[in-house]
Amino acid sequence: MTNILEITDLVLSYGAAAAVRGVTMHVAEGEVVTLIGANGAGKSTTLKGVVGLVKPVSGSIRFAGDVTTTRRTDWLARHGLNLVPEGRRVFAALTVAENLDVAASASNLHGAALKAKIREIYEIFPRLEERRDSLSWTLSGGEQQMLAMGRALIAQPRLLLLDEPSLGLSPKLATEVVQLISRYSRDHGLSVLLVEQNARLALSASDRGYVMETGRIVAEGPAAELQDNKEVRRAYLGS
C-alpha cells in the first residue's frame, strides 16, 4: 500500500515556541488515521503544517510522493489536500450555496459536473439543501460542521484532514459526524487524517492512530490496539 502522506521529523514553531518537535507519521492510501492528544499537544499545528499554513522549521512532508513545503496552501487545496479547519470557519456572510460555490474554487468542476457534485453533497447532507439560501452564520453548530465538510468534499480531496470535527456538537451528533467520515472513506477510498480530543470516538472510526503529547508522538498503532493500551486508556479514554 502506498502512502498518500509521509511526515518525517517535522518541527513547527510559532515564533520561539516549538509546538511540534519532530513528528514522524504517515497515512496510507484509503486509510482513516486519527491523531489524538490533549489540548495544546500540537495536533492542530501539525495539520496546519501539512497544508502549509505554518511553515516547517525542519523535517519533510510528502503528499502523494511530492514534497509540499514549497507549495502554497491554495495550490495544495486545488491538488487534493484539503483541511476542514477547527471551528468550521464557514464564511458567515455567504449563504450555504455560496459557501459551496466558493469552495469549488479548489476543484476544476464547472457547469453540469459541478451541479452533479453539489447534488452529491446535498444527498450526503440533506439538511444543507434545506438551508441552502440561509446565511451560514444563522446555521447551528452541527449544520456548520456539515457545511465545512461539504466544502471540503466539493474540492474532491485525495486526503482529507479534519481538525476537531466533533467540537461543540452534541454527543449524538458528534458520533454521527465521525461515523459519516469513516463510511465516506470506505465507500470512496478517501484517505483521512482526523484530529480529535474525543479519543474514544475517533479510535472507534479509524484504522490506525497516533497519540501526541507536548509536540511528540508517544504511541502509535492500529486503532483497536490503542484502545486496549493501558497508558492510552488511562490518559485519554478515562478508564
Binding site: V51, A77, N82, L83, P85, V102, S105, A106, S107
Partner: peptide, 8 residues
C-alpha cells in the same frame, strides 16, 4: 487562511 484552504 480559510480562503486558501478552499483553493482560492
Amino acid at each position: 487562511d480559510t480562503a486558501q484552504l478552499m483553493g482560492i
